[in-house]
Computed example of a mutant assay.
Amino acid sequence: MAMVSINTLRPIGIACIVFMSGCASMGQLPVTDSASAPEQQKSSTSAVNNEASAVSKLDVDRNQSGFLPHQEYTPEGNKITYQPSPNPYLKQNIQIPEAARKAFQEADRKMQKGEYRNARIAFRAITREFPSLSGPWVKLGLIADIREDKAKAEKAFKKAIEINPLNINAYISLALHQRRKGDFDGAHDSYMAVLNVWKDCPDAHLNLAILYDLYLNKPELAQPHYEAYDFLIGGKSQEVKDWLAEIRRRTGIEKSFIDNPPQRPVAESGGVSSETEAKPETEEKG
């Protein structure tokens, strides 16, 4: 997943929200829609003072470890390829009526052309005719967000979650909405709800890291989730690696939260070689 300016990701996220109560996605999850993360990282670095966050390594482990992926090893010390858990939202086998599919596609075309009033009317009609589908409610929330109707947006996202508690897109859209209006506690809870549903959701880890780092000034809590995102995407983003290096300089925590190789056997000389300070090597992930 290429890391680009987050502003450019918003329309992609809007276009890819799934329209059904739970089946195959029409695209990837939305990531974030704030200013570009690299620019935010620079500004946040200058804003964080030396006394910033007093969260200990123990607190980080206690609060985050249950939601993080972990690199496992064979008894011989070789890495075992990590198999991310599947997105439960996409595993649902729900038959979508062809009429609903066509109506959604037409409403979505209106939305992409900026015809928000007509799109809203069309999506509302779908919710009345097919009340078991959660996706149209996500779209209605996104349209309300665009029209800056915060109350309607939040109500629509929560309605989507009520209809389908596995709708990952709805949780992330709700969290982004809450973060934009300054409800950081609500955004945090929504991202954690995603990880409760699907702990290996890369975008939830990335967005939660950004929330902790740039909005809550808790880099120690952000670091594990930046690392989780890097791990889950296979270490393919140099930009994310740069973010990790930068945040490690601020926190002073060099030990990986994801990849902690076992100690090597005692050498014949009687010494012990330890790899406990090794950084994650996600580029070797299969």
Rank of each mutant, 00 (worst) to 15 (best):
R10K: 15
K155C: 00
D189V: 00
N50C: 02
F231Q: 04
Q112W: 06
V194L: 03
K155D: 03
R179M: 07
W198G: 01
A160H: 07
S173T: 13
V194Y: 02
Q238A: 13
K236I: 15
E129V: 02
H205T: 03
P97Q: 10
D149E: 15
I258T: 10
H177P: 08
R101C: 01
I253Y: 12
C23H: 04
L176P: 01
L176A: 07
I126R: 01
V266F: 01
N49I: 14
Y89T: 11
K279I: 05
R120Y: 09
Y82D: 09
R120H: 10
A245Q: 14
S5T: 06
T251K: 07
K79D: 04
Q71D: 04
D183E: 02
N63H: 03
C23E: 12
A222M: 00
A267E: 10
V266G: 06
A209C: 00
I161A: 07
S21Q: 12
E283T: 15
A2M: 08
P75C: 08
K79V: 15
D108L: 15
A54W: 02
I168P: 06
G13P: 08
L9W: 10
D185I: 00
H188Q: 03
F104P: 00
N167M: 09
E115D: 15
A2R: 12
M3A: 04
Q95F: 09
Y171L: 08
Q105A: 14
G235K: 08
N63F: 08
F104V: 05
F19Q: 11
E281R: 15
M26N: 14
G286E: 11
A204Q: 02
E220Y: 00
A170G: 08
P86H: 01
F184D: 00
S43Y: 03
S85V: 01
F157H: 14
L133S: 11
I17G: 09
A119R: 04
H205V: 02
G182L: 02
L216E: 11
A54Y: 06
A267Q: 14
A267D: 12
C16F: 11
R250T: 09
V48A: 05
S44K: 07
N50E: 08
E98H: 07
G22A: 09
E76T: 14
Q71Y: 12
T32H: 01
A204L: 05
E227S: 08
K159S: 15
K236A: 14
E106S: 11
I96K: 13
R248L: 08
A24Q: 13
S36W: 01
A15R: 13
F19I: 04
A153M: 08
A144D: 14
A107M: 07
P219N: 00
P86C: 01
A15S: 14
A204P: 00
S256K: 07
K113C: 07
C23M: 03
P262A: 07
R264W: 04
T74H: 09
A160K: 11
A151D: 09
K79T: 12
H177G: 07
L29E: 15
D213S: 00
K113G: 13
M3V: 13
I126Q: 05
L214S: 05
E239K: 12
T32N: 05
M1T: 08
Y226C: 03
A54L: 10
V266I: 14
